[in-house]
Design a protein around this nucleic acid. Structure first.
Length: 420
DNA sequence: CACTAGGGATACAG
DNA sequence: ACTCGTCCCTAGTG
């Protein structure tokens, strides 16, 4: 994922930071990076189509941790997938299926640890799994938005338009998309590494002092990205050298061809499409309440932009953003009867006992109970469902939750005492 | 020598 | 038929 080897070359401008240094700021969170780790604790249940609250607890603990340090989180979810990545996703789906079969086989033989390892590689983070979390976010008044396509672009849109101050993620693609401020690899204690684009001129390993945004974009694509594999033997260092010398990817490719490197005739067109995909990705504008491009498409650009995925009408885009309909099937999430499928079973049998009521987040005993009936009314009223801006109730709730957390932290982490 | 690509170990939770 | 791994080490290549 992302750009292989990019973050290590930027090590000199990546600084250790703590969530409390972002107090008073708003953060957009790449929720997939949380879910990916969170599902490991209950991958067996999820593979069998059974619900398990553990992954929700994982995410909510992080939400509460951020709130405790005064950071206001906005959770961003992935939406539909792009046709450009379809062949890669077929491979991944096949790999998951193979791992699931192996898990079942190990389990039959009684080797539970080996089975568990395979289950972890077999988990599929479906929109239904994300939806369970979204339901809890609504109850707890946490802001969220489901992107029409890639979450990465949505995160950067929120940052560029000042809806948030920074982005929390694990993915180096955020740099390629042009995100000004990023908090990488944040752990459960709030420790991670900070990055800001304004430091880029001071980088040591590779010299980017005279690089424009466009040159950084082209350097990253040339080193191999999700939308275009790299030429053999070309990584970050060599693509950096090429772009530094020739300034544009067209000239760099000409040079390689003159040197005798044979380049697929489709490659240059693919390169152009990759650039456009990063620059003009489709995102949801929570103010206009409609689908827009990450950055405006110039009028002189006559290229067909079908590879960005279809443009969706306003009502559909909003329903997706609010998490009311599945971004891949457009089916309503109200009905849970389809979520009880045993993934391993090709006959798609429906399990008993998973299609009913209770899906709520079991609040910790130390934390105050939250009145969910009022929040539901709020949601029904339709005033601002998916992107609830700060209101008094949320502030009060987060204050109470913070106090609960203070008690927990005081009990198990003596370092925090100095804060109070 | 610098760099890229691929394999192995590993993750979460309590 | 429903969404993305990553780090470290090393062999092999330009």
């Amino acid at each position: 994922m992302g750009i292989q080897g990019l973050l290590p070359t930027l090590k000199s401008i990546m600084h250790p930071r703590h969530a409390q240094e972002y107090a008073g700021k708003r953060a957009a969170i790449d929720t997939y990076s949380w879910l990916h780790k969170a599902v490991l604790s209950c991958s067996r249940d999820l593979c069998h189509g059974r619900h398990n609250d553990k992954y929700i607890d994982y995410c909510m603990r992080r939400v509460q941790m951020l709130r405790y340090y005064g950071v206001q989180p906005v959770l961003v979810f992935d939406g539909g997938s792009l046709p450009m990545k379809s062949d890669q996703e077929i491979k991944r789906a096949r790999s998951r299926k193979e791992n699931l079969e192996r898990a079942l086989e190990y389990e039959r033989l009684g080797n539970h640890s080996a089975a568990y390892e395979c289950y972890q590689r077999a988990v599929d983070i479906t929109p239904a799994i994300a939806f369970r979390l979204i339901q809890v976010l609504r109850q707890e008044n946490v802001q969220y938005v489901v992107a029409p396509y890639e979450a990465d672009a949505q995160l950067v849109f929120l940052a560029l338009n000042r809806h948030v101050d920074f982005v929390i993620t694990e993915d180096s693609d955020l740099i390629v998309y042009g995100c000004p401020q990023i908090f990488f690899k944040m752990d459960k204690h709030g420790q991670g590494v900070g990055f800001q684009i304004s430091d880029i001129t001071a980088n040591k390993d590779i010299d980017l002092s005279d690089f424009t945004k466009q040159m950084i974009l082209e350097m990253c694509i040339m080193s191999g990205c999700d939308y275009l594999p790299s030429l053999p033997g070309i990584g970050v260092k060599r693509s950096h050298g090429l772009i530094k010398r020739f300034r544009t990817y067209q000239k760099a490719l000409k040079h390689l061809e003159a040197k005798g490197v044979l380049i697929d005739p489709q490659y240059e067109q693919g390169f152009h499409r990759a650039i456009l995909t990063f620059r003009h990705h489709r995102v949801y504008d929570p103010v206009k309440k409609e689908m827009v491009h990450l950055t405006g498409v110039p009028s002189e650009l006559d290229t067909n932009l079908d590879f960005l995925g279809p443009h969706l009408p306003q009502t559909t885009a909003t329903a997706i953003a609010r998490g009311e309909v599945d971004p891949t099937t457009f089916e309503s999430f109200q009905d849970f009867s389809s979520s009880g499928r045993l993934v391993a079973d090709s006959n798609a049998t429906v399990q008993n006992g998973v299609s009913n009521k209770k899906v709520g987040f079991s609040a910790k005993k130390n934390l105050p109970a939250i009145n969910s009936s009022r929040t539901h009314q709020h949601h029904r009223s339709g005033s601002r469902p998916c992107f609830q801006l700060s209101d008094l109730k949320a502030a009060l709730v987060s204050f109470l939750i913070s106090w609960g957390l203070v008690c927990i932290l005081l009990a198990c982490n003596p370092q925090v005492e100095s804060l109070v």
